[in-house]
């Protein structure tokens, strides 16, 4: 039992990896952004999730997902009160701020520091689902079902029901 969750957290650590090379998109930053991103932090359980970055770039402005690190002031008033102009960070991927294991050890204690402002930053899995599903449900467009994004891996070596989401039906 313990090993499963250990494996799971290890799997989570391997995140956004393949950047499929393509034409740079014309953005406000004039910076090369990937057209497709494969999110495969749960690759031990599911096939990676292919995220069409270019498509989303045409729907939404950078700040709606990248908060204040993409060179524009954040759309969220809770961020923009401090991050007024926004910074152009070298690393803008989700996992560099949203931790894969948000409820472990030192972070819990660090959050008790009275001067800390960011006490409620979601973990990586929470950030993805809240952001993706939040928009897809609100706009009633885009995939929302579990298997719409997460193709189940057919792996016999997996313990039954390891995904923690669905009863194994096979």
């Amino acid at each position: 039992m313990r090993l499963e969750w250990y494996q799971l957290s290890l799997g989570i650590i391997v995140t956004i990896c393949s950047f499929v090379a393509g034409e740079p998109l014309a953005t406000e930053l004039n910076r090369k952004v990937p057209e497709m991103v494969v999110l495969d932090s749960l690759s031990n359980l599911y096939e990676g999730v292919s995220f069409d970055h270019a498509l989303h770039d045409s729907y939404a402005s950078c700040v709606e997902c990248h908060h204040h690190v993409a060179g524009q002031p954040s759309a969220d008033p809770a961020c923009s009160s401090c991050h007024r102009s926004g910074t152009v960070d070298i690393v803008v991927d989700c996992k560099s701020c949203h931790l894969t294991d948000p409820f472990y050890g030192d972070l819990l204690s660090a959050k008790r520091n009275l001067s800390r402002y960011h006490i409620d930053m979601t973990g990586l899995i929470g950030a993805y689902h809240l952001n993706c599903l939040g928009c897809h449900l609100a706009l009633t467009t885009g995939p929302t079902g579990c298997l719409d994004c997460h193709q189940r891996k057919r792996n016999d070596s997996l313990p039954q029901g390891i995904n923690g989401t669905h009863e194994e039906t096979e």
């Binding site: 472990y104 819990l108 973990g123 599903l133």
Partner: peptide
């Protein structure tokens, strides 16, 4: 052992936040 409960770790929406 200092680990969050199983339900918290499984929640995809982080509807469950573990802490002090």
């Amino acid at each position: 052992k200092g680990r969050p409960p199983a339900c918290v770790e499984a929640c995809p929406m982080e509807a469950l936040t573990f802490g002090y």
